[in-house]
Write a protein that binds this DNA or RNA. Structure first.
Lengths: 138, 138
DNA sequence: GTTAAAATGCAATGCCATTGCAGAGCATGC
DNA sequence: GCATGCTCTGCAATGGCATTGCATTTTAAC
Protein backbone atom coordinates (compact mmCIF):
# COMPACT_ATOMS: atom_id res chain seq x y z
CA UNK A 1 0.00 0.00 0.00
CA UNK A 2 2.82 2.32 0.82
CA UNK A 3 4.12 1.24 -2.56
CA UNK A 4 1.47 3.32 -4.23
CA UNK A 5 2.38 6.32 -2.16
CA UNK A 6 5.97 5.78 -3.14
CA UNK A 7 5.01 5.98 -6.78
CA UNK A 8 2.89 9.04 -6.21
CA UNK A 9 5.80 10.86 -4.68
CA UNK A 10 8.21 9.79 -7.39
CA UNK A 11 5.85 10.98 -10.09
CA UNK A 12 5.78 14.40 -8.52
CA UNK A 13 9.54 14.50 -8.19
CA UNK A 14 9.59 14.08 -4.43
CA UNK A 15 12.04 11.68 -2.92
CA UNK A 16 10.04 9.13 -0.97
CA UNK A 17 11.53 9.09 2.50
CA UNK A 18 9.94 7.28 5.38
CA UNK A 19 8.65 10.46 6.94
CA UNK A 20 7.15 11.73 3.73
CA UNK A 21 5.36 8.48 3.08
CA UNK A 22 3.83 8.63 6.51
CA UNK A 23 2.77 12.21 6.03
CA UNK A 24 1.24 11.50 2.65
CA UNK A 25 -0.55 8.48 4.03
CA UNK A 26 -1.95 10.61 6.81
CA UNK A 27 -3.07 13.32 4.44
CA UNK A 28 -4.89 10.81 2.27
CA UNK A 29 -6.98 9.71 5.21
CA UNK A 30 -8.09 13.15 6.31
CA UNK A 31 -11.54 14.40 5.43
CA UNK A 32 -10.47 17.95 6.22
CA UNK A 33 -7.42 20.12 5.72
CA UNK A 34 -4.73 19.76 8.34
CA UNK A 35 -2.46 22.26 10.00
CA UNK A 36 1.13 21.75 10.95
CA UNK A 37 0.02 21.45 14.56
CA UNK A 38 -2.41 18.70 13.64
CA UNK A 39 0.42 16.83 12.01
CA UNK A 40 2.68 17.43 14.96
CA UNK A 41 0.02 16.17 17.36
CA UNK A 42 -0.44 13.00 15.36
CA UNK A 43 3.25 12.27 14.79
CA UNK A 44 4.25 13.19 18.27
CA UNK A 45 7.62 11.54 17.85
CA UNK A 46 8.52 13.51 14.77
CA UNK A 47 10.14 16.88 14.65
CA UNK A 48 7.90 19.82 13.89
CA UNK A 49 10.39 21.28 11.44
CA UNK A 50 10.65 18.11 9.45
CA UNK A 51 6.90 17.96 9.13
CA UNK A 52 6.88 21.61 8.14
CA UNK A 53 9.43 21.02 5.42
CA UNK A 54 7.61 17.96 4.19
CA UNK A 55 4.50 20.04 3.67
CA UNK A 56 6.48 22.79 1.99
CA UNK A 57 8.10 20.29 -0.34
CA UNK A 58 4.75 18.75 -1.16
CA UNK A 59 3.34 22.17 -1.83
CA UNK A 60 6.22 23.13 -4.07
CA UNK A 61 5.75 19.99 -6.12
CA UNK A 62 2.03 20.41 -6.51
CA UNK A 63 1.05 17.58 -4.22
CA UNK A 64 -0.82 19.68 -1.70
CA UNK A 65 -2.10 23.21 -1.62
CA UNK A 66 -2.16 25.51 1.36
CA UNK A 67 -5.26 27.19 2.69
CA UNK A 68 -5.35 30.24 4.88
CA UNK A 69 -8.69 29.95 6.61
CA UNK A 70 -8.08 32.80 8.99
CA UNK A 71 -7.72 30.49 11.95
CA UNK A 72 -4.17 31.61 12.48
CA UNK A 73 -2.52 28.47 11.21
CA UNK A 74 -2.13 27.60 7.55
CA UNK A 75 -3.75 24.34 6.60
CA UNK A 76 -2.88 21.88 3.86
CA UNK A 77 -4.91 19.54 1.72
CA UNK A 78 -4.13 17.19 -1.12
CA UNK A 79 -4.45 18.58 -4.59
CA UNK A 80 -6.54 16.99 -7.30
CA UNK A 81 -4.50 14.94 -9.73
CA UNK A 82 -4.18 17.62 -12.34
CA UNK A 83 -2.07 19.93 -10.24
CA UNK A 84 1.44 20.52 -11.43
CA UNK A 85 4.41 22.22 -9.96
CA UNK A 86 3.87 25.27 -12.08
CA UNK A 87 0.19 25.74 -11.78
CA UNK A 88 -2.05 24.94 -8.92
CA UNK A 89 -5.57 24.12 -9.97
CA UNK A 90 -7.08 24.58 -6.58
CA UNK A 91 -9.70 26.91 -7.94
CA UNK A 92 -12.29 25.39 -5.75
CA UNK A 93 -14.03 26.83 -2.75
CA UNK A 94 -12.79 26.27 0.76
CA UNK A 95 -15.21 26.04 3.61
CA UNK A 96 -14.36 26.84 7.20
CA UNK A 97 -16.78 25.61 9.83
CA UNK A 98 -16.88 28.00 12.73
CA UNK A 99 -18.22 25.26 14.99
CA UNK A 100 -15.71 22.47 14.58
CA UNK A 101 -13.07 24.77 13.10
CA UNK A 102 -12.36 22.30 10.32
CA UNK A 103 -11.63 23.38 6.79
CA UNK A 104 -12.91 21.47 3.79
CA UNK A 105 -12.23 21.64 0.09
CA UNK A 106 -15.38 21.84 -1.99
CA UNK A 107 -14.13 20.76 -5.41
CA UNK A 108 -17.62 20.80 -6.84
CA UNK A 109 -18.11 24.46 -6.09
CA UNK A 110 -16.06 26.25 -8.68
CA UNK A 111 -15.07 29.84 -8.31
CA UNK A 112 -16.92 32.03 -10.79
CA UNK A 113 -15.15 34.65 -12.84
CA UNK A 114 -14.74 37.93 -11.07
CA UNK A 115 -15.01 41.19 -12.92
CA UNK A 116 -12.05 43.39 -12.09
CA UNK A 117 -11.35 47.03 -12.86
CA UNK A 118 -9.40 48.04 -15.93
CA UNK A 119 -5.82 46.83 -16.07
CA UNK A 120 -6.08 44.57 -13.05
CA UNK A 121 -4.68 41.13 -13.72
CA UNK A 122 -5.66 37.97 -11.87
CA UNK A 123 -3.06 35.45 -10.84
CA UNK A 124 -4.90 33.58 -8.17
CA UNK A 125 -8.32 33.52 -6.54
CA UNK A 126 -9.11 32.40 -3.04
CA UNK A 127 -12.68 31.94 -1.99
CA UNK A 128 -13.35 31.06 1.61
CA UNK A 129 -16.83 30.49 2.90
CA UNK A 130 -17.32 30.50 6.64
CA UNK A 131 -20.33 28.96 8.26
CA UNK A 132 -21.58 25.67 9.62
CA UNK A 133 -20.72 22.41 7.95
CA UNK A 134 -23.10 19.55 7.26
CA UNK A 135 -22.04 17.56 10.30
CA UNK A 136 -22.32 20.43 12.74
CA UNK A 137 -25.63 21.71 11.42
CA UNK A 138 -27.14 18.24 11.26
CA UNK B 1 -13.17 68.98 9.40
CA UNK B 2 -12.41 66.82 12.36
CA UNK B 3 -15.91 67.82 13.44
CA UNK B 4 -17.34 65.52 10.83
CA UNK B 5 -15.18 62.69 12.01
CA UNK B 6 -16.35 63.37 15.51
CA UNK B 7 -19.93 62.95 14.38
CA UNK B 8 -19.10 59.83 12.45
CA UNK B 9 -17.66 58.22 15.53
CA UNK B 10 -20.54 59.28 17.74
CA UNK B 11 -23.06 57.86 15.32
CA UNK B 12 -21.33 54.51 15.52
CA UNK B 13 -21.18 54.62 19.28
CA UNK B 14 -17.45 55.21 19.51
CA UNK B 15 -16.19 57.85 21.87
CA UNK B 16 -14.23 60.36 19.84
CA UNK B 17 -10.86 60.58 21.49
CA UNK B 18 -7.96 62.46 19.98
CA UNK B 19 -6.21 59.29 18.93
CA UNK B 20 -9.29 57.79 17.33
CA UNK B 21 -9.98 60.93 15.35
CA UNK B 22 -6.47 60.87 13.99
CA UNK B 23 -6.74 57.21 13.10
CA UNK B 24 -10.08 57.69 11.37
CA UNK B 25 -8.74 60.69 9.51
CA UNK B 26 -5.80 58.63 8.35
CA UNK B 27 -7.99 55.75 7.25
CA UNK B 28 -10.17 58.09 5.20
CA UNK B 29 -7.18 59.24 3.22
CA UNK B 30 -5.88 55.79 2.33
CA UNK B 31 -6.54 54.34 -1.10
CA UNK B 32 -5.65 50.88 0.17
CA UNK B 33 -6.21 48.85 3.29
CA UNK B 34 -3.75 49.45 6.10
CA UNK B 35 -2.09 47.14 8.55
CA UNK B 36 -1.34 47.85 12.16
CA UNK B 37 2.30 48.27 11.22
CA UNK B 38 1.38 50.87 8.62
CA UNK B 39 -0.46 52.78 11.27
CA UNK B 40 2.39 52.43 13.69
CA UNK B 41 4.87 53.68 11.11
CA UNK B 42 2.75 56.72 10.39
CA UNK B 43 1.97 57.59 14.01
CA UNK B 44 5.45 56.88 15.20
CA UNK B 45 4.77 58.65 18.45
CA UNK B 46 1.74 56.59 19.32
CA UNK B 47 1.69 53.30 21.10
CA UNK B 48 1.15 50.24 18.97
CA UNK B 49 -1.33 48.78 21.41
CA UNK B 50 -3.49 51.87 21.44
CA UNK B 51 -3.61 51.81 17.66
CA UNK B 52 -4.43 48.14 17.77
CA UNK B 53 -7.29 48.72 20.14
CA UNK B 54 -8.58 51.64 18.12
CA UNK B 55 -8.85 49.39 15.11
CA UNK B 56 -10.50 46.66 17.12
CA UNK B 57 -13.01 49.15 18.52
CA UNK B 58 -13.74 50.47 15.05
CA UNK B 59 -14.19 46.95 13.79
CA UNK B 60 -16.53 46.04 16.61
CA UNK B 61 -18.68 49.05 15.88
CA UNK B 62 -18.87 48.43 12.16
CA UNK B 63 -16.66 51.31 11.15
CA UNK B 64 -13.95 49.25 9.51
CA UNK B 65 -13.64 45.67 8.40
CA UNK B 66 -10.58 43.51 8.60
CA UNK B 67 -9.03 41.73 5.65
CA UNK B 68 -6.69 38.80 5.81
CA UNK B 69 -4.80 39.02 2.54
CA UNK B 70 -2.35 36.31 3.39
CA UNK B 71 0.49 38.77 3.79
CA UNK B 72 0.86 37.83 7.41
CA UNK B 73 -0.61 40.98 8.85
CA UNK B 74 -4.31 41.70 9.03
CA UNK B 75 -5.34 44.84 7.21
CA UNK B 76 -8.22 47.20 7.84
CA UNK B 77 -10.35 49.34 5.59
CA UNK B 78 -13.33 51.59 6.11
CA UNK B 79 -16.73 50.01 5.69
CA UNK B 80 -19.40 51.36 3.40
CA UNK B 81 -22.01 53.38 5.25
CA UNK B 82 -24.52 50.59 5.53
CA UNK B 83 -22.41 48.49 7.85
CA UNK B 84 -23.75 48.00 11.32
CA UNK B 85 -22.34 46.48 14.43
CA UNK B 86 -24.30 43.34 13.93
CA UNK B 87 -23.81 42.73 10.30
CA UNK B 88 -20.86 43.58 8.17
CA UNK B 89 -21.77 44.19 4.58
CA UNK B 90 -18.28 43.82 3.23
CA UNK B 91 -19.40 41.32 0.68
CA UNK B 92 -17.17 42.85 -1.90
CA UNK B 93 -14.02 41.45 -3.41
CA UNK B 94 -10.60 42.22 -2.02
CA UNK B 95 -7.63 42.48 -4.30
CA UNK B 96 -4.07 41.90 -3.22
CA UNK B 97 -1.37 43.14 -5.57
CA UNK B 98 1.64 40.88 -5.42
CA UNK B 99 3.85 43.67 -6.75
CA UNK B 100 3.17 46.54 -4.40
CA UNK B 101 1.65 44.29 -1.75
CA UNK B 102 -1.26 46.68 -1.30
CA UNK B 103 -4.78 45.44 -0.69
CA UNK B 104 -7.79 47.16 -2.21
CA UNK B 105 -11.51 46.85 -1.71
CA UNK B 106 -13.40 46.41 -4.96
CA UNK B 107 -16.92 47.38 -3.94
CA UNK B 108 -18.17 47.12 -7.49
CA UNK B 109 -17.23 43.47 -7.77
CA UNK B 110 -19.83 41.65 -5.78
CA UNK B 111 -19.38 38.13 -4.60
CA UNK B 112 -21.65 35.74 -6.47
CA UNK B 113 -23.68 33.12 -4.68
CA UNK B 114 -21.80 29.94 -4.04
CA UNK B 115 -23.47 26.58 -4.26
CA UNK B 116 -22.71 24.56 -1.15
CA UNK B 117 -23.35 20.93 -0.32
CA UNK B 118 -26.47 19.86 1.51
CA UNK B 119 -26.87 21.24 5.03
CA UNK B 120 -23.92 23.62 4.81
CA UNK B 121 -24.83 27.09 6.01
CA UNK B 122 -23.06 30.26 4.97
CA UNK B 123 -22.30 32.94 7.52
CA UNK B 124 -19.62 34.86 5.72
CA UNK B 125 -17.81 34.83 2.41
CA UNK B 126 -14.32 36.08 1.74
CA UNK B 127 -13.10 36.42 -1.79
CA UNK B 128 -9.53 37.45 -2.31
CA UNK B 129 -8.06 37.93 -5.75
CA UNK B 130 -4.30 38.07 -6.04
CA UNK B 131 -2.58 39.56 -9.03
CA UNK B 132 -1.31 42.85 -10.36
CA UNK B 133 -3.17 46.06 -9.73
CA UNK B 134 -3.85 48.78 -12.28
CA UNK B 135 -0.97 50.95 -11.18
CA UNK B 136 1.60 48.19 -11.19
CA UNK B 137 0.52 46.68 -14.50
CA UNK B 138 0.31 50.05 -16.20
C1' DG C 1 32.50 1.66 -0.78
C1' DT C 2 33.22 6.40 -1.60
C1' DT C 3 31.37 10.71 -2.41
C1' DA C 4 28.07 14.31 -3.15
C1' DA C 5 23.54 15.85 -2.46
C1' DA C 6 19.39 15.84 0.04
C1' DA C 7 16.77 15.26 4.28
C1' DT C 8 16.52 15.55 9.15
C1' DG C 9 16.80 17.34 13.96
C1' DC C 10 17.96 20.93 17.07
C1' DA C 11 18.35 25.60 18.30
C1' DA C 12 17.24 30.09 17.61
C1' DT C 13 14.88 34.01 15.70
C1' DG C 14 11.33 37.16 14.33
C1' DC C 15 6.83 38.78 13.51
C1' DC C 16 2.25 39.47 14.82
C1' DA C 17 -1.82 39.27 17.82
C1' DT C 18 -3.43 39.56 22.32
C1' DT C 19 -3.94 40.33 27.37
C1' DG C 20 -3.11 42.21 32.31
C1' DC C 21 -2.41 45.92 34.90
C1' DA C 22 -1.60 50.55 36.48
C1' DG C 23 -2.09 55.31 35.57
C1' DA C 24 -4.27 59.14 33.00
C1' DG C 25 -8.20 61.29 31.00
C1' DC C 26 -12.97 62.19 30.63
C1' DA C 27 -18.02 62.44 31.83
C1' DT C 28 -21.48 62.48 35.21
C1' DG C 29 -23.88 63.58 39.46
C1' DC C 30 -23.84 66.16 43.37
C1' DG D 1 -16.05 72.79 41.51
C1' DC D 2 -15.22 68.34 43.08
C1' DA D 3 -15.55 63.48 43.87
C1' DT D 4 -16.64 59.07 41.65
C1' DG D 5 -16.54 55.74 38.26
C1' DC D 6 -15.83 54.35 33.66
C1' DT D 7 -13.07 54.44 29.51
C1' DC D 8 -8.90 55.00 27.26
C1' DT D 9 -4.01 54.75 27.09
C1' DG D 10 0.73 53.05 27.61
C1' DC D 11 3.96 49.68 29.18
C1' DA D 12 5.30 45.06 29.90
C1' DA D 13 4.77 40.47 29.00
C1' DT D 14 3.11 36.37 26.70
C1' DG D 15 2.06 32.98 23.28
C1' DG D 16 1.52 31.05 18.70
C1' DC D 17 3.19 30.30 14.26
C1' DA D 18 6.44 30.57 10.36
C1' DT D 19 11.02 30.41 9.06
C1' DT D 20 16.12 29.93 8.82
C1' DG D 21 21.10 28.30 9.96
C1' DC D 22 23.87 24.70 10.94
C1' DA D 23 25.57 20.23 12.12
C1' DT D 24 24.42 15.44 11.52
C1' DT D 25 22.37 11.62 9.34
C1' DT D 26 20.46 9.42 5.51
C1' DT D 27 19.92 8.56 0.69
C1' DA D 28 21.26 8.26 -4.16
C1' DA D 29 24.95 7.98 -7.70
C1' DC D 30 29.12 6.33 -9.40
Amino acid sequence: MLQDLDKTLQQKGVRPTAMRLLVLDYLLKQPAAVSLSDLEAYFHRADRITLYRSLKTFEGKGLVHSIDDGSGAVKYALCPDDCTTLEHHDLHVHFFCSQCRETFCLPKSRIPDIALPEKFKTEEVNLLVKGTCGTCSG
